[in-house]
Each structure stands twice: as C-alpha cells, then as structure tokens.
Amino acid sequence: MPDVNPPRLPAVLPNREHHPMNIRPAGPDDAAAIAAIYNHYVATTCITFEADPVSVADMRERITETLAANLPWLVAEGGGEVSGYAYGSRWKGRCAYRYSVESTVYLDVSKTGQGVGKVLYAALIEALRARSLHAVIGGIALPNEASIALHERLGFEKVAHFKQVGFKQDRWIDVGYWQLLLA
C-alpha cells in the first residue's frame, strides 16, 4: 500500500442542525467512548455479528492496529463528546487485495438521523481516497434501510447478497455488500 499521509480534515463541519461537529482522527484515548457506542449495537441489534461486549482494552487494540496499518479511524465530536466513528479495515489478507478495504460506521444512537453519519462517512471515504485505495466495501446486516440509504447516497452500489450467513438473537440474518470505486 502506498505510504500516503492522511488528508487534512476541516476542523469543524456543520451537521443538518447547524451544530458544530468536529471530525478528527481517533486515538487510543477514544476507546472508551467508541466501545460504549459499539456495545449498544452488540447488545441490542443484529447490525453487528459480535455477541459479547467489547472491552475498552480490546477496542484500544483495534484502533491501534488500524492506525498502524496506515488506515483511517475517525471520530465525530459534538459538544465535547464522541458521537460516532468510522474506519477502514483490510478487506482480505492476500496481497492482491491491498487496495481494497472494508468500511465501518457507527453512531451514538441519540445522534442518528441528524446528518452526522453522512458527514463522518464522507470524511472516511476521502481519507481512504487520499491513501490511494481503490475499492471500499461496506457490509450491511439486513434489513437495515438507514445504512443502505447512507451507502447509496454516498455512491455505493449493491454488489452481493448472502442469505442466512449470520445467526444472532435467535434468527438467521442476511448480509448485503455495497461497493464504491474510488478511482
């Protein structure tokens, strides 16, 4: 993967309600806030296939590993609190996949529907583009109309649908994949 410096992000971006929102690179100190956001989805939804809460230490390690791989992990802040995060991770381990990444975005449940996700995810896409990556792949546990709409608003196209590949909360779950070519 080319060694490219991450892009400079604007210090403050407006959300739909015109409250200031800061998008910045995440660091290990954000692990507790990120784990709190994520663990809500682990415990209450099928959006993630993880079944057990993620500890702050494990989340810190995930952030550190992502950054060490020269991939972006961003957080959105509003009012001094982390309101969401997005990151890129390796799509597959084989060398030929090195220009393709999987994208992930999660918001504090109280921040959904306010435009935070769109601004945060767009910033992630630009950070991936700045690293000369070629393809971004977003996996979505189905049904999830809000996530589908977000991906498609940002130019992703559905490329795959796997039936009943996950089992959580006593039911089988389909997964769809949406892809965006950056070049």
Rank of each mutant, 00 (worst) to 15 (best):
N15D: 15
S100E: 00
Y41N: 07
G139M: 04
K118P: 04
N5V: 08
G113H: 08
Y121R: 03
V12F: 00
I173T: 06
T112W: 08
V42Q: 15
N144A: 11
S147P: 09
Y41Q: 11
V119F: 09
Y97W: 10
I137Q: 01
E152Y: 10
V116R: 06
A146I: 07
K92W: 10
A33P: 05
P143V: 00
E126W: 02
E81K: 10
V4W: 00
P72V: 03
A51M: 11
C95A: 12
A146W: 02
V82Y: 07
A31S: 15
Y121E: 03
S55N: 01
R131L: 10
Y87D: 03
D52I: 14
E77L: 06
L67T: 10
N22Q: 12
A160K: 12
A57C: 00
L142K: 09
G93W: 05
A36K: 14
G80T: 02
L13W: 01
K168H: 13
G78H: 08
P28D: 08
E152K: 13
A68I: 02
A36E: 14
F156S: 04
S83A: 10
A32L: 05
L13C: 11
D52R: 13
A130L: 03
V175A: 11
S103Y: 01
P28G: 15
N39T: 11
A51N: 13
W172N: 15
Y121F: 11
Y97G: 13
F49M: 01
G88T: 10
G93F: 03
T45L: 04
N5E: 15
A86D: 06
R171M: 08
C46Y: 13
P14V: 11
A183D: 02
E61P: 00
A122G: 11
V165F: 01
A135W: 02
A183S: 09
A96Q: 09
I37Q: 04
V136F: 01
Y177F: 15
G80L: 05
K158Q: 13
L124G: 08
H19I: 00
Y85L: 13
A160N: 11
E102Y: 06
A57M: 04
R62P: 03
I140A: 00
K168Y: 12
G139Y: 06
R16D: 13
A96K: 01
Y121H: 04
N70M: 06
I148P: 01
Y106G: 11
I34C: 06
T104M: 04
A33D: 06
D174F: 05
D170T: 09
A43L: 14
V12E: 07
L142E: 12
C95Y: 07
V82N: 04
I140V: 13
K163Y: 14
A33Y: 06
A33R: 09
D29R: 05
I140F: 02
H19M: 00
W178V: 10
G166I: 04
A149Y: 12
E152G: 10
E61A: 15
N22F: 14
Y177E: 06
D30H: 07
T112Y: 03
I63R: 01
G80Y: 01
E126S: 05
G166S: 08
D29S: 14
H161N: 09
R8K: 12
A35Y: 00
S83P: 02
R62F: 07
